[in-house]
Design a protein around this nucleic acid. Sequence first.
RNA 1: GUCCCCUUCGUCUAGUGGUUAGGACCCAGGAUUUUCGAUCCUGCAACAGGGGUUCGACUCCCCUAGGGGACGCCA
Length: 480
Amino acid sequence: MIRVRFAPSPTGYLHIGNARTAILNWLCARHYNGRFILRIEDTDVKRSSRESELSIISDLKWLGLNWDEGPDIGGKFGPYRQSERTEIYQKVAGKLKQMGRAYDCYCTDEELKRDREEDLKNKRPPKYRRRCLNLTEEEKKKKISEGRKPSVRFFVEPGLISFKDLVAGEVEFDTVNIGDFVILKSDGKPTYNFAVVVDDALMEISIVIRGNDHLSNTPKQIMLYNVLGYKLPEFAHIPMITGKDGARLSKRHGATSVMEYRKKGYLPEAMINYLSLLSWSSTSGEEILSIERLIEEFSFERISRSQATFDIKKFNWLNGYYIRNSSIERITELCKPYLTEKGFEVKDDDILEKMVNSVKDNLDYLSQISERIEVFFFDRAKTIGEMELSFLRESNSRMVLSEFCKKVANIKEFSTEEFGRVMKEIQNETGIKGKSLWMPVRLALTGRFEGPELVKILEIFGPNKTRDIIIDTYNKYLKN
RNA sequence: GUCCCCUUCGUCUAGUGGUUAGGACCCAGGAUUUUCGAUCCUGCAACAGGGGUUCGACUCCCCUAGGGGACGCCA
């Protein structure tokens, strides 16, 4: 049974990079019919919060990633929150101390920092100097009486650690480059490198899929596995997602949280599809892939080793594709909150659907809806711009519109068919056609060069209102 | 500074010794269109550099350069 896990730290919103890690874990679990476990790594008391945990869970659910065991639903390997497993870590750390593979360290942050800076200044790799390795009982007592609380460090033995990563391939590390690292902080909480090993082992995680930034942590963890006699899992370090400058995705690259994209109106299936395309490709070469296809095609072999740049343009394209191919009912429903926010209320759902449908094919993301269908709520001919106005004042435009007004003024029951017939007449009589013929009408009606198709506006406004607006605009700007 | 990873069009990628180096996004042009867009078609554009190995290297090896990551009582 394949068991994989996603283990976020609840210190903020779900990050795009973490979301991708979650997706890959989930795809792997579903592909192999294994179990997907959610574990909360909240050992940093200061930075972790329940709000973050809740928002991460909410985003994961929105993406459609369901887990088989987790803090909210339990499971037989629980608890699934590290803050609730403190005694476990302390017991294991105690065992390590008994084995002589861990020891108390009384160094203060300041002392450690000073050593570090000195190493860096002398261009030496910063490494713990084992100041507390051979402390006598006297010295320990003295430190304690000074009010120092010890942390616990793992004793690193020299040697070569190598393993075969499912993505990175064969990797080897020399432990001389690794200092004795802290496994238990002075507040009694475990550090990441310690907790992750204990939990992954106890929760019987069989494949550890995580970001490539953890690759150099792996030898530390393998030492722990070995000393503790735990069964080693397989490792799969997936390439990181970067911004345009090649550095890991961060705030300065723009939106980095799933929440932000969610709010902007990106579709979850588009996000999963796009993120799965980063550092991975289908054997078929296709890029539009359903969740089912992604599960079916998941394979470590097709995950590339190089980092990928997050490209918002391609994401927009893909999201637009999904919007275009979703039902008008769904899109309309999803658009409602954005319209409400702008005060665009439409009682009749049929009309609203028509409005949304008139621009549905042009959206990158849903929140664009309000500006796109603004034309139906404002008389935009009243706020016409300079460029638009000068186009309207060209002789062709004047001719088209004056003819239009003249022909239409005496028609009692104006209809859509009538509208078409009148335009045809104008075309025949003046010889003006195409853009020159229709743009004046569009401008007079909407005040803008672009917008929904004219027929669709006509359909929503109705022939009479359409006519009235055009005549008004003509009278206002072109009468003399 | 030390260690680890990476390097094909601007971006995401295909490619596992012999290909006109393919696709997608972007961009440009055309078609269509009652605007923009959407759609269809066409085009632009890449093997980081240098050594090997080989009859033959994008592909295998080494070096250099560049990028990224780790070296925290953050995860």
